[in-house]
Design a protein around this nucleic acid. Structure first.
Lengths: 249, 249
DNA sequence: GACGTTTAATTGTCTGACAAATGAAAATTG
DNA sequence: CAATTTTCATTTGTCAGACAATTAAACGTC
C-alpha cells in the first residue's frame, strides 16, 4: 500500500486508490478496521485532511463506512446489493441523459435484458412475485392515473418480473436499466387506449409466468418492446411537427 | 440546493447530495462550472475542508472534474461510458466477492445477459467484431497458454460478441457481468480436452454470428453456459474431496 | 454485582495559512 | 502597433493545529 510522493498534486486520489486496491485484492477483508486517520496520515506522510478526502472518496463508493467514538474508525464495508442498486441507477441515469442515448437504444437494451430473465422467472416465480405483478397491473387499469404514476407502476411490474428470476446478480444488473429508463418513459403520454393495450400485455405476461410458460412471456415482452418504441416514435414525431409549425429552432 | 444545518454530523454528505441532485435533475448542465470552494463554503455556511470532502465524493463518482488555476474550479463532468465501465466492474467484482454469490448464480446471470445480445449481434456484427472473435478463438487454441491467459482471451471473445450488438447500453451493462466473473473463472483449471471443446463452441458461435444466425448462437451459448457450470462443479467437487482426505477443516 | 461517572480514542468540523498551477492583464520590447 | 515577456490575481491542493461530538471501555460507588 504505497503512494508516489513525487507527484504532490493527486495525493488524496493516490491514497484512495491504494486503499481501494487493497480492498479489491482482499488484503483488507470485510469489516476490517482501517488504521485511524492520524495513523494513516503518518503512514502516507500526509496531513489528516488529505487522508480524510481519500476516505470520503471511498465512502462515496460504499467501500468503507465510518463510525465515531472510542472504538470507531473506518471499516471495510460489505457491499450490499441495495447500495449497489443506488449507484447503478445514478450512473445509468446520467449516462442516458448526458450521452444522447436515443430512446430506441435504451429501450432495446432494457427489453433485451428483461427477456433474458423471462425463462428463469417463469421457472422460479413465487406467489409473492405474482401478487406484485397482479397488483401493479390492476393499478395501471385504474382511470385517472397520472402518466408518472402509470410509469412508476410499470417499473414496479417489471422489477417484480426481474426479481422473480431469483438471481440477485440479474436483479442488480437490471435495476439500472429499468429505473434509468423511467425519466425517458415519463416523456410519453399514455392514452387510454394505449394503457389498455399495455395492461392487457402485462396480464398476459403474468399469466404466462404463472403457467411457467417462459416462451410466451418472452414473445409478449418482444411485442411490448415494439409497442413502446412505437409510442415513443409518435411522441417524437408530434414534437417534430409542433416544432415546425411553431417555427422554433 | 439546501442542506439541513440542524444535523452537523453529515455536512459533507449532505452537500454532496445537494450538488448531485442538482446535476441529476439537470439544473447543473454538463461543463457548467460550480462556484469556487470558497463560495460554496459561504453558501452552505461551512468551512472549505468540508466543501472539499463533498467535492471529493462527487469526483469519486466521476460526476465532476476539477482544474487548478485562475479559470479553474469544479466542472460538471460528462459521464463517459469508459468511466462508467470502470465503476461498474469494480462494483460488480466486489459484490460477487463479498456476498457469497455462488459460481452458479453469477454464471447463470452472465450467460442469460449474453444470450440477450446474441440476436442483435448476429444482425449487426461488423467485420471488426468478427475478426476479434476469430483472433481470440485462435489464441485460445494455442498450446502452452496459461489458464489466466485463456480466461483473459475468453473475456475478450465474449466482449467482442457483446459489442457486436452495437448497443452501448448493453455493452456497459454486460461489461460488469463479464469482467467481474473473471476472478471466479480463474479458479477453473482448463484441461486440454475442455479447452478444445470451448474453442469449438466459440468457433461455432463466430460462424453463427457471421451467418447472421442468432438462434444458433443462442443455442451454443446455452450449451457453453451448461458446460462452464459443469467444469466449475468438477473443481468444487475435487476440492471437497481433497479437503476430506487431508482432514483440513 | 449493578449502576453511574470519568476518560481516552476517534471522527467531524473549523480556522488560517502556504504552495502550485493557470490564465489574464500589464508591462516591455522590437 | 504587434509580439513577447512579466506580473498578478484566482483557484485548487495541501498542511498544521485546534475544538466539539460521539462512543465504548475503564473506573469508582453503592
Amino acid at each position: 500500500m504505497k503512494i508516489d510522493p513525487k507527484n504532490p498534486a493527486d495525493l488524496s486520489a493516490q491514497i484512495a486508490k491504494a486503499i481501494r486496491d487493497a480492498i479489491i485484492s482482499g488484503a483488507l477483508p470485510v469489516d476490517e478496521r482501517l488504521p485511524s486517520e492520524a495513523e494513516l496520515a503518518d503512514q502516507f506522510e500526509v496531513s489528516r485532511p488529505t487522508v480524510r478526502e481519500a476516505l470520503k472518496r471511498l465512502a462515496a463508493q460504499s467501500l468503507i463506512r465510518t463510525q465515531r467514538g472510542a472504538t470507531g474508525g473506518a471499516f471495510v464495508n460489505r457491499l450490499k446489493f441495495e447500495d449497489a442498486y443506488g449507484q447503478q441507477i445514478t450512473t445509468s441515469t446520467l449516462l442516458l441523459s448526458m450521452n444522447e442515448i436515443s430512446f430506441a437504444t435504451a429501450c432495446e437494451a432494457r427489453y433485451a435484458l428483461e427477456r433474458a430473465c423471462a425463462p428463469l422467472s417463469a421457472k422460479r416465480r413465487t406467489a409473492d412475485h405474482l401478487a406484485t405483478m397482479r397488483a401493479e397491473t390492476h393499478r395501471q387499469a385504474q382511470p385517472g392515473l397520472t402518466d408518472e404514476a402509470f410509469c412508476a407502476s410499470d417499473v414496479a411490474f417489471h422489477r417484480a418480473l426481474v426479481d422473480a428470476a431469483g438471481n440477485p446478480v440479474l436483479s442488480y444488473q437490471l435495476a439500472g436499466a429499468v429505473e434509468a429508463m423511467q425519466p425517458l418513459m415519463n416523456m410519453i403520454t399514455f392514452s387510454a387506449r394505449s394503457r389498455e393495450r399495455i395492461v392487457q400485455m402485462h396480464t398476459t405476461i403474468a399469466d404466462a409466468i404463472e403457467a411457467t410458460d417462459g416462451s410466451t412471456a418472452d414473445a409478449i415482452l418482444a411485442e411490448l418492446a415494439e409497442y413502446t418504441q412505437e409510442l415513443a416514435q409518435n411522441v417524437i414525431s408530434q414534437r417534430e411537427a409542433a416544432r415546425h409549425t411553431n417555427g422554433a429552432d
